[in-house]
Design a binder for these strands. Structure first.
Lengths: 347, 347
DNA sequence: TTGAAAGCGCTAACAA
DNA sequence: TTGTTAGCGCTTTCAA
């Protein structure tokens, strides 16, 4: 069916070894032979079998990314942006991207093992790091190349990119406190995530700086989805004492929270201030536009991809642990004067 | 390094053949041997090398998708949704998804050849079909398994899913005409795309039904991006006679058009009506929410994925050519009473 | 019920 | 400069 190196060998009367080396442009093949081989290869429409090559070279030129989905969360806009950054950067270096999904919990580690031991990919990108992350422990133990988006607890001796969530959340609190708010509430991501830890830390620091006390019951945990944010907000609004400033642990939850508030007839930005985190594309187009903390998601994907490829090529990584400074983006949802429209990094 | 079938053979004292068959649960291996082999495999943490298996089986269990990107358009929300549908459905059947990007034009066909002849994937999904689509011609010639999202001109003898763009656009025109609009404008996608053809056809049919004449200069072609929509709208508004009803060939362009109108101080939904096509998640959250034609993007991805997998497994495909009926979603951007909030198919 | 042997398409040590 | 040989890890005839 498909043309193999063997066909070229027969056509040219050379051995398959010579053909292989001619195509790979080795020095020890005569120019005449190279010419001949290349011409015939072209004529026959030869394309190397990547699987055979991979088996021999122990290299697939594929990088893998396993999305820790709960249900069909593949389409989380955050990950879309991230994937875009990873994929485009990988493509530039001739790498393909293998994407799969696997819910955390049982079977997750096996999924990683299959990728690693199955040699399906050359390296992995780990996202949504957890405080104690078995995936990272496993990869570190086996020495398999990987780069993480996010820190973990313990020793950070592996390559990673992260943003300074604590700082970002602190900025949000500062911003809202400066607008006169004292009654805060926080919709927190799941506790096991490392980003939850940092965002909570930033929240507490910010509140302490502004000398504000936050009742622990005003911290509601949800699941990073719009729907989750909606429910969490309903819960907060059901209570006798309403908060005036609500921070969502990410934009999706904040947008859900806005809906819930609007359902109760509250005008977001006037009756209540709501802010998010991430600055997904939807944040700018939300109704009202959402005050949030901007992360250059697309760029982060590119950086992670870049580091992993460097790792695979045994190139030096200048800064193996990068923590980025976020920026505050003020929009209508907190009722303040919006940040002048900046050209951010959207691709 | 990694545990191979050979290690298990040595440990158990069996031959590699027997081990292979025991693991594959062949009938002609004694229960005792199977037990032994499986136990040892478990103990050693054996994971089959997928590359070696692929080489032998001529099957990778990977389906491929090449995004026809112009620049870093990977993060197009439309494709995010679509990818999500494809990826999740594939994962359910044990397939991984290989995503890469390749701009149309030179090198595009080579990219397909590399995937096909390189046997990197078992099948391909083709998106953004063009009127004369060399990718589809190529795949059809070679007999390589593929499913397309979108029709092409000529014989439709290959498996595909598409939505009825003509009908969708006709519904938009009807809707806006019913609101009293006579001065239409259309921001069209690039001419080579098949969807452009159908949407234009629907536009003309709709206008004819309403007895409205559209000056050809009122049809501006753009590139499916928000920015492109913005520019196209500026161009339309620069002219002495302004349209009162503008249809964007997709939501992103429509959202860009809304910005442009708002920059000129127009209140979208009151001073001018604007509608889009696709119903990406952002449409609902746009400001004002965008009237559009709903396509179940996520589901379509799933259907395409499903058909391809059936093809790979030699299973019957009941309906190899599916054209879906779209629905109109009325929101504020056309100034009418919004469609009551329906639960759509968002994942 | 088991094992020996061949081979998937390619690369790489070694010899000629 | 070229060819012979072995082997990557696995599956699958075929024979025992």
């Amino acid at each position: 069916m498909a043309v193999t190196i063997k066909d070229i060998a027969q056509q040219t009367g050379k051995s398959i070894t010579t053909v292989s080396r001619a195509l790979a442009d080795y020095d020890d093949v005569s120019p005449a032979t190279k010419e001949l081989v290349r011409r015939v290869a072209d004529e026959l429409g030869y394309v190397p079998n990547t699987v055979a090559r991979s088996l021999q070279k122990r290299r697939t030129d594929i990088i893998g990314l396993i999305l820790p989905t709960f249900g069909p969360r593949f389409s989380d806009p955050f990950f879309s942006e991230f994937l875009a950054g990873v994929g485009n950067r990988a493509a530039e270096s001739g790498y393909d991207l293998l994407v799969s999904t696997q819910a955390p919990g049982d079977g997750e580690l096996e999924a990683y093992q299959r990728k690693v031991n199955g040699r399906r990919v050359d390296g992995l990108i780990v996202v949504r790091t957890r405080r104690n992350d078995a995936r990272i422990d496993y990869l570190r133990e086996t020495g398999f190349p990987f780069v993480a988006f996010g820190r973990t607890e313990g020793v950070l001796d592996y390559p990673l990119v992260d943003e300074d969530s604590a700082l970002g959340t602190r900025m949000l609190v500062e911003h809202m406190a400066a607008l006169g708010h004292r009654q805060f509430a926080y919709i927190s991501p799941p506790a096991e995530l490392m980003l939850t830890h940092y965002r909570l830390q930033g929240l507490n620091e910010g509140l302490a700086d502004a000398d504000i006390r936050l009742d622990p019951s005003r911290i509601v945990t949800s699941d990073l989805t719009q729907r989750g944010g909606f429910r969490a907000m309903e819960e907060l609004l059901d209570r006798p004492e309403r908060p005036t400033a609500v921070i969502g642990g990410n934009d999706l939850m904040a947008i859900g929270a806005m809906s819930a508030a609007q359902h109760r007839g509250l005008a977001v930005g006037r009756d209540i201030a709501i802010a998010g985190f991430d600055d997904i594309p939807m944040a700018e187009h939300a109704h009202p536009p959402l005050t949030t903390v901007h992360q250059p998601i697309y760029q982060i994907g590119g950086m992670v991809s870049d580091m992993l490829i460097k790792l695979l090529l045994d190139e030096e990584i200048e800064r193996p642990q990068i923590v980025l400074q976020p920026t505050l983006v003020v929009r209508r949802s907190t009722g303040a004067e919006p940040t002048p429209l900046l050209k951010h990094d959207s691709p």
